[in-house]
Design a protein around this nucleic acid. Structure first.
Ligand SMILES: [Mn+2]
Ligand SMILES: [Mn+2]
Ligand SMILES: [Zn+2]
Ligand SMILES: [Zn+2]
Lengths: 125, 125
DNA sequence: AAAATTAATGCGACAATGTTGCAATAGTAC
DNA sequence: GTACTATTGCAACATTGTCGCATTAATTTT
């Protein structure tokens, strides 16, 4: 199925590009001019399939999306940790990659690593 | 608020003890004799507060619960990874603890690390 | 042992999030 | 411009977990 370029996709992509944080559906929606809910979800899912973005599931189960630095449809590198602040709720990607070793016979498909706590700005000092 | 012992709590606890895997709400419910949905959720949340169990959020956002080995209400040790099989959907705790280092000023409250893929039994070889 | 206290439960309603079917719209290739 | 079909909007739906409130029952007090 060949992808088509659309204003909605461009808009969502530009929103993702504009932030240093992973974003959830409603934050993205707030910044669009009435793109349908379902459409935004479908666009984000496509981005994940295509290696344009990656999905982070927060502790509450909500999904966040961040641009991929070096992924494409075939090859993904997502063995890095994320951090969500329990106060401002921002989700950010950490750079350092972690080493994942699996028991014999196991195969990894994806990794979702999320640290929760308080970010620099929100931590009670 | 002082905890009370009840048959429902004992039942849920014994179910958790009976499995080597983290369990989700409905798997637990299947094994009970009609404990109310909300009650099971409340019991599981209590267990997490009390350091009896810990919660793992799966990639889809569903919650799984596993007994804690060495936690109590005050002190938690959950810096280990989990694995969910995309085929049989079982969630298991991995033993090895991972080292989490945070940027200056960040505070960790919890860690949710989940590898998804295929387990030993389900991996296409 | 009975009464008092209040934690736990069941029930129903609700919230939040994400998905899907289908008809209408609009990219893209020719 | 036409044909093809990916994309969109809409509405309905599914899933998961929470909450308020009246009732029940575990535990403490008398
Ligand atoms: Mn990331
Ligand atoms: Mn565990
Ligand atoms: Zn913060
Ligand atoms: Zn499996």
């Amino acid at each position: 199925m060949k992808r088509r370029n659309t204003p909605s996709k461009e808009k969502v992509l530009s929103i993702l590009k504009s932030q240093n944080y992973a974003m959830c559906h409603d934050t993205i929606a707030e910044q669009t001019d009435d793109i349908n809910r379902a459409t935004i979800y479908r666009i984000l899912n496509q981005f994940c399939e295509d290696g344009v973005a990656h999905r982070i599931t927060s502790e509450s189960g909500k999904q966040f999306f961040a641009l991929c630095k070096s992924c494409n449809a075939g090859e993904h590198h997502h063995n890095h940790l994320h951090f969500q602040c329990n106060s401002c709720e921002k989700v950010e990607c950490f750079k350092s990659e972690i080493n994942i070793s699996l028991p014999e016979g196991y195969q990894i498909e994806n990794f979702n690593g999320l640290i929760s706590g308080f970010c620099n700005s929100c931590a009670p000092n």
